[in-house]
């Protein structure tokens, strides 16, 4: 490649404004532009290479092993269908155990997850969903959970079921929960978000304080 300065035309004010000179000037400018473009593309590739080669540092705790995520058996959605994790294959599914009367933690987590959705590429967003499993089945109907979750993002939905099914799911996912007392009781519950990878493996656990940016970064990485 020739250096850009070698073919630069003389400064305009010293050059007679003849037709050949104008043509030469144009071709000189084209060359400068080509070199600048090449440099820009080169830098962009270098950045991409660094990002691709460098390992992604997950904000969540990555789980080892290839055991498929526990099935969430016996849980139903608003439309009456049973939860089937096979429906989410090829996607990232965030799983959260919460309840609709939860004033602070659950709406905050939903809002954070929704912000993460917004910062994903359209393609990744289409492949990312969230399922909120109720830890308060006596107050949460599947219909209401659906209203609650979809308020935050259309890809979010809810599931509930008999206490036995919820206890079983909670225990398999390492979730603690305990109902409080009184009419307006609150529920203590593990507020981690869990991520099932596109291959159906429970791959990652995010702490309650995870940020939208961290979540989006990890999800994009899980989607590959």
């Amino acid at each position: 490649m020739t250096t850009p300065t070698a073919d630069l035309p003389p400064a305009a004010d010293q050059t007679p404004n003849t037709e050949p000179n104008r043509a030469r000037r144009r071709s000189g400018r084209m060359r400068v532009l080509a070199v600048v473009a090449a440099v820009v593309v080169g830098i962009a590739f270098a950045f991409l290479a660094i990002r691709t080669v460098g390992p992604h540092l997950y904000a969540g705790t990555v789980l080892q092993g290839d055991t498929p995520a526990p099935a969430l058996e016996g849980l139903v959605r608003a439309d009456g269908s049973s939860v089937d994790l096979a429906d989410y294959e090829g996607d990232v599914l965030m799983v959260f155990f919460g309840y609709a009367n939860c004033p602070d933690v659950c709406p905050t987590t939903m809002a954070t997850a929704a912000q993460a959705m917004d910062s994903l590429s359209a393609e990744d967003r289409d492949r990312t969903r969230l399922l909120m499993v109720s830890v308060d089945p006596s107050r949460d109907t599947a219909e209401y959970l659906e209203t609650f979750t979809s308020f935050f993002h259309p890809n979010f939905s809810g599931a509930t079921g008999p206490v036995e099914a919820i206890d079983s799911a909670a225990s398999q996912y390492g979730i603690f929960y305990q109902l409080g007392e009184g009419e307006d009781y609150t529920v203590d519950h593990t507020a981690s978000l869990m991520g099932i990878a596109p291959d159906g493996v429970l791959r990652i656990v995010w702490p309650p304080e995870v940020t939208a940016e961290q979540l989006a970064g990890d999800i994009a990485e899980l989607l590959g």
Binding site: V105, T186, D188, A191
Partner: peptide, 17 residues
């Protein structure tokens, strides 16, 4: 109907009020 002051306490990722 009522208004309460609450603190969310998170310990071992379990949130309680």
């Amino acid at each position: 109907r009522s208004f309460e002051l609450h603190r969310t306490v998170t310990s071992d990722n379990v949130a309680s009020m």
